[in-house]
Design a protein around this nucleic acid. Structure first.
Lengths: 222, 222
DNA sequence: ACCGGAAGTCAACACTTGTGGGCCAACGGG
DNA sequence: CCCGTTGGCCCACAAGTGTTGACTTCCGGT
């Protein structure tokens, strides 16, 4: 009800976070806003929603807690801003039968290029940004966090599945299967840190999950 | 440091929770203890560690918050007690090449009985008790919750993998892969509630995940 | 040089949380 | 029948939370 919050536009262009509509007034406070967002992502990723206190985030960003309120309205608004993410899923022009000069899927051969590439892409995402960890940590205990994950799943993952599934009607289920395997590995490897999952090499993960994901996407079934 | 807590023995024998050492003095307060534990599991499952307040748990159990402290020492102690779980993994005598009069894995045929049975077992576990949801919700944001999950993984899941993997040395990694797929599906279906994952029928889940799990367990690879 | 507004600080609020101490009631063996 | 033990409740504390409003500082345009 209180309209204390201002427009709330991020503005950084690093890594994964946010798309690039660009062309904003460029306020003087943009640096602070970005600092807050970065600190928020870090804290949300490290501690989840409840333990990531506004005070701690503000301190990380080197400003006063009240600034967070000023710029993002309340804690939920801050999370909503921090959890804005573009998975940058590989486009329609999928590297499916490409020449592939890279030694991708080394030991496996017929693993299915689409599956391998997908797993690879998500490993990159997960390892180069804390935002997915934050999203997962919050999504598991917080209603709006879960809602945000559902949105991302629907808007960014299902479309990919549509392009690759033999039957467009089965795409959502296939996307859910893919998500389950990829989120599950992220859970085991980056959040719960099951030792064997952590110790697996990147290539091992790709070799094991690639065929699974590929099958979920393309196998003719129901 | 304070030894306020008493011995803390559960005592119920329902569903999944706890093993059955049995034969305890049987105190007069056992009913209350069980009520607390049940309420705690419910709250932990529904809200995660931080939002499951001792006060709320006590109210659900119909007693005073201080009783929780008396019986379980502190909140962590309560969680530790509530998260005691026996997965009751099918024994060595695995239904691997059995006659299998049941129409298990109906549509799939060569899906691998071990994989199918495992997935089935976990679906049962997940749907008949809130404890696994509690464990997952807490494990994702709480250090000792994650630790508990690692213990369960190591003590109850790896042994199963050992029995089925061609190479005992690769068993931990195989167990981690299995865990990733099963936890991931639980995450998508029971926690994040991705609509397509929720709408899939039990048999569909079994048919899709069964072969994956079977491959992770038995496929000769690294 | 002035001034309006933005950026930022400070101190406080209302509330919830985990936790502990003190007190009362019921029980059951001697 | 009595009294120690046990089960239970009430109240309070200290710490930490999100959130707010008033105050100061700084900047850029006129």
């Amino acid at each position: 009800m209180s309209d204390t919050a201002q427009s709330s536009r991020p503005g950084e262009r690093a890594g994964v976070e946010a798309g690039a509509p660009a062309e904003k007034p460029a306020r003087r406070s943009d640096a602070t806003r970005a600092a807050i967002l970065a600190a928020a992502r870090e804290r949300f990723a490290a501690s989840g929603y409840e333990r990531a206190t506004i005070r701690a985030i503000a301190q990380d960003a080197g400003i006063d807690p009240s600034m967070v309120m000023r710029y993002y309205g309340n804690k939920e608004g801050l999370f909503a801003a921090a959890a804005e993410i573009d998975l940058r899923m590989p486009d329609v022009s999928w590297p499916d039968e490409r020449e592939s000069a890279l030694p991708v899927g080394s030991g496996h051969g017929a693993g299915g290029q689409a599956g391998l590439a997908l797993v690879e892409h998500f490993l990159d995402l997960w390892e180069n940004s804390e935002i997915l960890t934050a999203l997962l940590r919050v999504g598991v205990t917080n209603a709006s966090g879960a809602e945000r994950m559902r949105e991302i799943f629907e808007q960014q993952l299902i479309p990919v599945a549509v392009k690759h599934s033999p039957d467009p009607q089965s795409a959502p289920r296939r996307a859910a299967l893919v998500a389950s395997q990829i989120l599950g590995m992220a859970l085991a490897r980056y959040v719960l840190r099951f030792p064997p999952a952590v110790e697996m090499s990147r290539q091992e993960v790709i070799d094991w999950l690639g065929p699974t994901v590929h099958r979920y996407l393309t196998s003719p079934d129901a």
